[in-house]
Design a protein around this nucleic acid. Structure first.
Length: 254
DNA sequence: AAATGTCCCAACCGCTCTCCC
DNA sequence: TGGGAGAGCGGTTGGGACATT
């Protein structure tokens, strides 16, 4: 059976329903979780009278119904944290999400995909549109991020996102290298530049994969292979924490 | 006004991990 | 210790909303 709803096809293969959740289903799930707490999702479905798989219930709760979830665009601070943590952990969205209270892994994943993953750059008009929309939302709420990330972020970055996050979320652990001094790369004195390059290769993919104009990526002065040892030595310890922001290209300079 | 492009987000799928027996 | 079930995670898809052409 297939039922058209909100543009989705709501499949009812056997007993389970699929597709968008209805307000009634949300209500049932919220009531159940408020009474019994999270967990045992497979039994939640049947106990709450929902024709949804446990998986679907969990996802709905985690990504949409859970109290404390933020809505709306990510702030520049949150963007910075995502960029930093993604450089550390890669696509560990759930791990990254732990340091962004109120944000879900799904949201962060979607955001990354939209803004950083793709090769081509949306037009600057699009960016302006997004920023304008963000500003309007902030004007309405009187809270949140600055109106223009690009114009304000330089001063914002006086504190590295890590330190900002550390202040905002005291549980944020130190960078792994700070906790593990034996790690030989980048953040401390590297034994060799090849060691640092290993990490930089990983970093370069995201550092300058911001939306670019020509589809080739905005490659700033982080071509480590062309740097002298002297440059490398001064460059290596600078990571984690933006030293500057390339406003024109939208990249962060370390 | 219609067509097109892009952004955003909810939801699903398949795989992996963890726990328990 | 191995297998099964449940939970979690990352990748992907589909569609609405909105701006641009």
């Amino acid at each position: 059976m297939v039922v058209g709803m909100m543009g989705w096809n709501v499949h009812e293969q056997g007993w389970w329903r699929k597709g968008p959740w209805t307000p009634e289903e949300d209500k049932l799930l919220k009531e159940y979780v408020s009474l019994h707490g999270e967990g045992r999702w497979s039994s939640v479905a049947k106990s709450a009278g929902l024709r949804r798989t446990g998986k679907s219930c969990r996802l709905r709760w985690v990504n949409y119904l859970r109290p404390g979830l933020k809505r709306g665009h990510l702030t520049p601070q949150e963007e910075g944290i995502i960029i930093e943590l993604h450089a550390l952990w890669g696509n560990k969205w759930s791990t990254i999400a732990r340091y962004l209270p109120g944000r879900t892994d799904n949201e962060i994943k979607n955001y990354w995909r939209t803004h950083f993953k793709k090769k081509g750059k949306p037009s600057e008009k699009k960016d302006r549109r997004r920023l304008l929309k963000q500003k309007m939302e902030q004007d309405e709420t009187g809270t949140g991020a600055k109106a223009s990330p690009l114009s304000e972020v330089t001063s914002e970055q006086t504190l590295s996102p890590e330190l900002q996050a550390q202040q905002e979320f005291p549980t944020l652990p130190l960078h792994p290298v700070m906790e593990n001094p034996q790690l030989p790369v980048l953040y401390q004195e590297a034994d060799s530049w090849s060691d640092t390059n290993i990490l930089m290769d990983g970093l370069s993919g995201w550092l300058w994969n911001f939306d670019d104009q020509n589809g080739k990526g905005v490659q700033a002065n982080n071509d480590c292979s062309k740097m002298t040892n002297k440059n490398q030595a001064s460059f290596a310890p600078c990571s984690f924490g933006f030293d500057n922001v390339d406003v024109q290209n939208g990249g962060y300079i370390y």
